[in-house]
């Protein structure tokens, strides 16, 4: 076959193959085009001081959790999907995995009421009133969950509800 026919045909086939692969991955849940890769992956977790919800004025830092695998969950009382994942986070907490909640752009009283209503799976609850801590973490949507390993490196990030299927993907990383 002549090059002038073969070349465009080849290019077209390559295009079809690439698009097909992407479509396959998307439809089989292997790739979510809405998910942004986190820059934090395999990088040390931000250790900025986070004000605590309960003890007025005191702060904590992720550095205190060095040596443990922890989940960090950005949530808010105004965030409807956050309600969905509270039971699952609760069962993870019962397994002994420390979960740190960060109340994103929320009023303290509203957060308290949210936790009273939908359960409190959190080992510690920080507050991020103006979204600055979210910026540190590169968060772009609530709920957003990070997995931090024993050496303080971010291993995984998920924007959206943590459901059973999502949980399965991180199972191997949990102790």
């Amino acid at each position: 076959m002549r090059l002038r026919f073969a070349l465009p045909l080849l290019l077209f086939l390559v295009l079809v193959a690439v698009s097909g692969l992407a479509l396959y991955q998307t439809s089989h849940g292997k790739r979510d085009p809405q998910q942004l890769p986190s820059v934090l992956l395999n990088k040390p977790v931000p250790t900025v001081e986070i004000p605590l919800l309960q003890q007025g004025g005191s702060v904590f830092s992720l550095a205190e959790y060095r040596g443990q695998t922890v989940l960090v969950n950005f949530f808010a009382s105004w965030c409807l999907p956050c309600r969905l994942e509270m039971p699952l986070l609760g069962s993870l907490a019962n397994e002994g995995i420390p979960i740190i909640g960060i109340a994103y752009k929320d009023r303290a009283a509203d957060t308290e009421q949210f936790l009273a209503e939908f359960g409190n799976p959190f080992h510690a609850i920080g507050v991020d009133t103006d979204g600055r801590i979210g910026l540190e973490w590169g968060a772009y949507g609530i709920p957003e969950t990070f997995l931090v390993d024993q050496s303080g490196l971010v291993q995984w990030r998920h924007a959206g509800v943590v459901d059973q299927a999502v949980l399965e993907t991180i199972r191997p990383m949990l102790p």
Binding site: V39, L40, E136, W137, G138
Partner: peptide
């Protein structure tokens, strides 16, 4: 900002 949110 790029270090927190990536090239995107």
């Amino acid at each position: 900002i790029q270090q927190k949110y990536g090239d995107y």
